[in-house]
Protein backbone atom coordinates (compact mmCIF):
# COMPACT_ATOMS: atom_id res chain seq x y z
CA UNK A 1 0.00 0.00 0.00
CA UNK A 2 2.84 2.41 0.89
CA UNK A 3 5.43 1.15 -1.64
CA UNK A 4 7.09 4.14 -3.23
CA UNK A 5 9.39 4.48 -6.22
CA UNK A 6 11.84 7.36 -5.90
CA UNK A 7 14.39 7.93 -8.68
CA UNK A 8 14.04 4.26 -9.72
CA UNK A 9 14.64 2.90 -6.20
CA UNK A 10 11.94 1.02 -4.32
CA UNK A 11 11.10 2.20 -0.81
CA UNK A 12 8.92 -0.09 1.36
CA UNK A 13 7.24 3.08 2.63
CA UNK A 14 7.75 6.78 1.89
CA UNK A 15 9.12 7.72 5.33
CA UNK A 16 12.80 8.59 5.37
CA UNK A 17 14.84 9.61 8.37
CA UNK A 18 15.76 13.29 7.90
CA UNK A 19 19.39 14.34 8.09
CA UNK A 20 20.64 15.45 11.49
CA UNK A 21 18.35 13.26 13.57
CA UNK A 22 20.10 10.11 14.84
CA UNK A 23 22.08 8.93 11.80
CA UNK A 24 25.62 9.46 13.13
CA UNK A 25 26.43 5.75 13.08
CA UNK A 26 25.56 2.65 11.04
CA UNK A 27 23.99 1.07 14.12
CA UNK A 28 21.80 4.10 14.74
CA UNK A 29 20.67 4.19 11.09
CA UNK A 30 19.98 0.45 11.18
CA UNK A 31 17.92 0.77 14.36
CA UNK A 32 15.85 3.43 12.57
CA UNK A 33 15.18 0.94 9.76
CA UNK A 34 14.12 -1.63 12.36
CA UNK A 35 11.76 1.01 13.72
CA UNK A 36 10.05 1.23 10.34
CA UNK A 37 11.86 3.82 8.22
CA UNK A 38 11.57 3.19 4.46
CA UNK A 39 14.89 4.94 3.93
CA UNK A 40 17.46 6.87 5.95
CA UNK A 41 19.48 10.04 5.55
CA UNK A 42 22.78 10.12 7.42
CA UNK A 43 23.99 13.18 9.32
CA UNK A 44 25.67 15.81 7.13
CA UNK A 45 29.34 15.17 6.51
CA UNK A 46 32.24 17.56 5.82
CA UNK A 47 35.78 16.88 4.57
CA UNK A 48 37.31 17.20 8.05
CA UNK A 49 35.88 16.28 11.50
CA UNK A 50 33.90 19.07 13.20
CA UNK A 51 33.02 19.20 16.91
CA UNK A 52 30.02 21.48 16.27
CA UNK A 53 28.83 24.20 18.64
CA UNK A 54 29.18 23.94 22.43
CA UNK A 55 26.00 22.94 24.31
CA UNK A 56 23.16 23.78 24.61
CA UNK A 57 22.57 22.80 21.00
CA UNK A 58 19.02 21.46 21.22
CA UNK A 59 15.93 22.68 23.07
CA UNK A 60 12.82 20.52 22.89
CA UNK A 61 9.42 22.09 23.56
CA UNK A 62 5.80 21.05 23.16
CA UNK A 63 5.37 22.45 19.64
CA UNK A 64 8.89 22.93 18.38
CA UNK A 65 12.48 21.83 18.65
CA UNK A 66 15.16 24.47 18.28
CA UNK A 67 18.63 23.30 17.35
CA UNK A 68 22.04 24.68 16.50
CA UNK A 69 24.21 21.58 16.58
CA UNK A 70 26.66 23.24 14.21
CA UNK A 71 27.12 20.35 11.76
CA UNK A 72 29.24 18.19 14.05
CA UNK A 73 30.48 15.11 12.23
CA UNK A 74 33.52 12.81 12.21
CA UNK A 75 34.53 13.74 8.64
CA UNK A 76 34.02 11.95 5.35
CA UNK A 77 36.58 9.17 5.93
CA UNK A 78 34.90 7.95 9.13
CA UNK A 79 31.44 8.46 7.69
CA UNK A 80 32.18 6.24 4.69
CA UNK A 81 33.14 3.40 7.09
CA UNK A 82 29.73 3.74 8.75
CA UNK A 83 27.93 3.70 5.35
CA UNK A 84 29.73 0.47 4.40
CA UNK A 85 28.76 -1.06 7.74
CA UNK A 86 25.13 0.02 7.28
CA UNK A 87 24.90 -1.63 3.87
CA UNK A 88 26.29 -4.85 5.37
CA UNK A 89 23.38 -4.77 7.82
CA UNK A 90 20.54 -4.04 5.37
CA UNK A 91 19.64 -3.10 1.79
CA UNK A 92 17.43 -0.13 2.75
CA UNK A 93 18.03 3.00 0.62
CA UNK A 94 20.70 5.25 2.15
CA UNK A 95 20.98 8.96 1.47
CA UNK A 96 24.30 10.55 2.40
CA UNK A 97 24.32 14.28 3.16
CA UNK A 98 27.26 16.59 2.54
CA UNK A 99 28.10 20.23 3.14
CA UNK A 100 31.07 22.48 2.56
CA UNK A 101 32.05 26.13 2.65
CA UNK A 102 32.82 26.40 -1.06
CA UNK A 103 31.62 24.73 -4.30
CA UNK A 104 35.01 23.05 -4.75
CA UNK A 105 34.58 21.43 -1.34
CA UNK A 106 31.20 20.03 -2.42
CA UNK A 107 32.89 18.65 -5.54
CA UNK A 108 35.69 17.02 -3.55
CA UNK A 109 33.23 15.56 -1.04
CA UNK A 110 30.99 14.22 -3.81
CA UNK A 111 33.98 12.50 -5.38
CA UNK A 112 35.15 10.97 -2.09
CA UNK A 113 31.71 9.83 -0.99
CA UNK A 114 30.86 8.30 -4.36
CA UNK A 115 33.10 5.35 -3.48
CA UNK A 116 30.72 4.51 -0.61
CA UNK A 117 27.69 2.26 -1.10
CA UNK A 118 25.17 5.10 -0.95
CA UNK A 119 22.01 5.36 -3.06
CA UNK A 120 21.55 9.14 -3.12
CA UNK A 121 23.55 12.21 -2.24
CA UNK A 122 21.86 15.13 -0.52
CA UNK A 123 23.53 18.54 -0.63
CA UNK A 124 22.87 20.45 2.56
CA UNK A 125 22.88 24.01 1.22
CA UNK A 126 20.52 25.26 3.87
CA UNK A 127 21.82 24.89 7.42
CA UNK A 128 20.80 28.09 9.23
CA UNK A 129 23.24 27.66 12.12
CA UNK A 130 26.71 28.18 10.72
CA UNK A 131 26.42 31.66 9.20
CA UNK A 132 29.31 33.12 11.24
CA UNK A 133 31.52 30.51 9.62
CA UNK A 134 30.12 30.06 6.11
CA UNK A 135 28.14 33.23 5.50
CA UNK A 136 24.52 33.06 4.44
CA UNK A 137 23.25 29.66 3.30
CA UNK A 138 23.86 28.79 -0.38
CA UNK A 139 20.16 27.92 -0.59
CA UNK A 140 19.38 31.67 -0.52
CA UNK A 141 20.97 32.21 -3.92
CA UNK A 142 19.97 30.79 -7.33
CA UNK A 143 23.56 31.40 -8.54
CA UNK A 144 25.19 29.48 -5.68
CA UNK A 145 22.73 26.59 -6.02
CA UNK A 146 23.37 26.43 -9.78
CA UNK A 147 27.16 26.41 -9.41
CA UNK A 148 27.24 23.79 -6.64
CA UNK A 149 24.68 21.52 -8.33
CA UNK A 150 26.62 21.57 -11.60
CA UNK A 151 29.93 21.00 -9.81
CA UNK A 152 28.63 17.96 -7.93
CA UNK A 153 26.94 16.52 -11.04
CA UNK A 154 30.34 16.63 -12.78
CA UNK A 155 31.95 14.66 -9.96
CA UNK A 156 29.42 11.91 -9.29
CA UNK A 157 26.95 9.60 -11.02
CA UNK A 158 24.94 9.14 -7.82
CA UNK A 159 21.56 10.93 -8.04
CA UNK A 160 21.66 14.19 -6.10
CA UNK A 161 19.06 15.85 -3.91
CA UNK A 162 19.23 19.57 -3.10
CA UNK A 163 18.04 20.47 0.41
CA UNK A 164 16.38 23.87 0.49
CA UNK A 165 15.73 26.47 3.15
CA UNK A 166 12.33 27.87 4.16
CA UNK A 167 14.22 31.02 5.14
CA UNK A 168 14.88 31.84 1.47
CA UNK A 169 12.50 34.50 0.19
CA UNK A 170 12.13 32.71 -3.15
CA UNK A 171 12.22 28.96 -2.50
CA UNK A 172 10.45 28.08 -5.77
CA UNK A 173 13.01 30.09 -7.77
CA UNK A 174 15.81 28.25 -5.96
CA UNK A 175 14.13 24.90 -6.69
CA UNK A 176 13.81 25.83 -10.37
CA UNK A 177 17.52 26.76 -10.49
CA UNK A 178 18.46 23.40 -8.93
CA UNK A 179 16.31 21.51 -11.43
CA UNK A 180 17.76 23.46 -14.37
CA UNK A 181 21.32 22.77 -13.11
CA UNK A 182 20.68 19.03 -13.16
CA UNK A 183 19.49 18.15 -9.65
CA UNK A 184 17.67 14.81 -9.53
CA UNK A 185 15.40 15.73 -6.61
CA UNK A 186 14.63 18.37 -4.00
CA UNK A 187 14.39 18.00 -0.24
CA UNK A 188 12.20 20.71 1.25
CA UNK A 189 12.64 22.01 3.86
CA UNK A 190 15.48 22.51 6.31
CA UNK A 191 14.70 24.25 9.63
CA UNK A 192 13.25 27.72 10.02
CA UNK A 193 15.47 30.31 11.69
CA UNK A 194 14.53 31.04 15.31
CA UNK A 195 15.72 31.61 18.86
CA UNK A 196 14.84 31.14 22.54
CA UNK A 197 15.71 33.28 25.57
CA UNK A 198 15.77 32.17 29.19
CA UNK A 199 14.13 35.03 31.06
CA UNK A 200 15.65 34.34 34.47
CA UNK A 201 19.13 33.92 33.02
CA UNK A 202 18.52 36.88 30.67
CA UNK A 203 20.39 34.98 27.95
CA UNK A 204 19.68 33.19 24.66
CA UNK A 205 19.59 29.48 25.50
CA UNK A 206 21.39 28.08 22.47
CA UNK A 207 25.13 28.62 22.64
CA UNK A 208 24.90 29.77 19.02
CA UNK A 209 22.18 32.22 20.18
CA UNK A 210 19.91 31.33 17.23
CA UNK A 211 19.04 28.03 15.64
CA UNK A 212 16.63 26.15 13.43
CA UNK A 213 12.99 25.45 14.30
CA UNK A 214 11.59 22.00 13.54
CA UNK A 215 8.67 20.00 14.88
CA UNK A 216 4.91 20.67 14.65
CA UNK A 217 5.42 24.46 14.40
CA UNK A 218 7.31 23.95 11.13
CA UNK A 219 4.76 21.67 9.49
CA UNK A 220 2.40 24.22 7.84
CA UNK A 221 5.40 26.22 6.59
CA UNK A 222 7.02 23.11 5.11
CA UNK A 223 3.73 21.96 3.58
CA UNK A 224 3.30 25.23 1.70
CA UNK A 225 6.90 25.19 0.49
CA UNK A 226 6.43 21.64 -0.83
CA UNK A 227 3.12 22.60 -2.45
CA UNK A 228 4.63 25.66 -4.12
CA UNK A 229 7.71 23.79 -5.33
CA UNK A 230 5.69 20.84 -6.65
CA UNK A 231 3.49 23.28 -8.54
CA UNK A 232 6.60 24.63 -10.26
CA UNK A 233 9.03 21.81 -11.04
CA UNK A 234 8.95 18.20 -12.32
CA UNK A 235 11.70 16.43 -10.32
CA UNK A 236 10.55 14.50 -7.22
CA UNK A 237 10.48 16.02 -3.75
CA UNK A 238 11.20 14.78 -0.24
CA UNK A 239 8.70 16.71 1.87
CA UNK A 240 10.29 17.33 5.26
CA UNK A 241 9.36 19.54 8.19
CA UNK A 242 7.31 18.81 11.30
CA UNK A 243 5.58 15.65 10.10
CA UNK A 244 4.52 13.78 13.23
CA UNK A 245 1.45 11.77 12.17
CA UNK A 246 0.01 9.71 9.35
CA UNK A 247 -2.30 12.59 8.56
CA UNK A 248 0.66 14.98 8.21
CA UNK A 249 2.48 12.50 5.96
CA UNK A 250 -0.53 12.06 3.68
CA UNK A 251 -0.95 15.84 3.50
CA UNK A 252 2.68 16.12 2.34
CA UNK A 253 1.98 13.57 -0.38
CA UNK A 254 -1.22 15.39 -1.42
CA UNK A 255 0.96 18.53 -1.69
CA UNK A 256 3.11 16.58 -4.16
CA UNK A 257 5.89 14.98 -2.10
CA UNK A 258 7.21 11.57 -3.21
CA UNK A 259 9.03 10.78 0.02
CA UNK A 260 8.33 12.24 3.47
CA UNK A 261 11.17 13.21 5.81
CA UNK A 262 10.83 12.33 9.49
CA UNK A 263 12.99 14.06 12.09
CA UNK A 264 11.54 15.73 15.14
CA UNK A 265 8.77 13.09 15.29
CA UNK A 266 11.39 10.82 16.87
CA UNK A 267 11.11 13.14 19.88
CA UNK A 268 7.33 13.62 19.76
CA UNK A 269 6.36 10.00 19.02
CA UNK A 270 9.45 8.06 20.19
CA UNK A 271 12.01 6.18 18.13
CA UNK A 272 9.20 3.93 16.84
CA UNK A 273 7.60 7.01 15.19
CA UNK A 274 8.05 5.45 11.72
CA UNK A 275 5.94 2.39 12.49
CA UNK A 276 3.30 4.52 14.21
CA UNK A 277 3.05 6.93 11.27
CA UNK A 278 2.89 4.20 8.59
CA UNK A 279 0.17 2.41 10.63
CA UNK A 280 -1.80 5.66 10.76
CA UNK A 281 -1.33 6.23 7.02
CA UNK A 282 -2.62 2.75 6.21
CA UNK A 283 -5.61 3.19 8.51
CA UNK A 284 -6.61 6.48 6.90
CA UNK A 285 -6.04 5.08 3.40
CA UNK A 286 -8.21 2.05 4.15
CA UNK A 287 -11.00 4.24 5.56
CA UNK A 288 -10.80 6.60 2.59
CA UNK A 289 -10.52 3.83 -0.02
CA UNK A 290 -7.08 4.96 -1.20
CA UNK A 291 -5.30 1.96 -2.73
CA UNK A 292 -1.85 3.45 -3.20
CA UNK A 293 0.00 6.73 -2.80
CA UNK A 294 0.14 7.42 -6.55
CA UNK A 295 -3.62 7.94 -6.40
CA UNK A 296 -3.28 10.99 -4.13
CA UNK A 297 0.16 12.38 -4.94
CA UNK A 298 -0.10 16.08 -5.74
CA UNK A 299 -3.89 15.80 -5.78
CA UNK A 300 -4.23 19.28 -4.25
CA UNK A 301 -2.20 20.95 -7.00
CA UNK A 302 -4.33 22.54 -9.67
Amino acid sequence: MLQTNFLKKQFSNPLVLASGILGLTAASLHRTVQNGAGGVTAKSVSLEPRPGHPNPVIISKKYYILNAVGLSNPGVVEAVKEFIKFKQLCATPLIASIFGGHHDEFGELAEKISAAPIDFLELNLSCPNVSHEFGRPFAFSTEAVTIITKKVKEKTKIPIIIKLSPNASNITEIAKAAEAAGADAICAVNTLSGMAIDVKMRQPILHNKHGGVSGPALFPVALKCVYDICSTIKIPIIGTGGVTSGEDALAMIMAGATLVGIGSAVYYRGENAFNKITDEMEKIMTEEGIKNLEEIRGICIH
Binding site: G20, L22, G23, L24, S28, I58, S60, N67
Partner: peptide
Protein backbone atom coordinates in the same frame (compact mmCIF):
# COMPACT_ATOMS: atom_id res chain seq x y z
CA UNK B 1 23.94 16.78 23.43
CA UNK B 2 20.14 16.62 23.38
CA UNK B 3 19.32 14.27 26.27
CA UNK B 4 16.11 13.19 24.55
CA UNK B 5 17.25 10.59 22.00
CA UNK B 6 17.22 12.60 18.80
CA UNK B 7 20.69 13.91 18.04
CA UNK B 8 22.25 10.44 17.96
CA UNK B 9 25.49 11.59 19.60
CA UNK B 10 25.32 8.88 22.30
CA UNK B 11 24.18 6.02 20.02
CA UNK B 12 25.91 2.85 21.22
Amino acid sequence: KCGVGICGQCAM
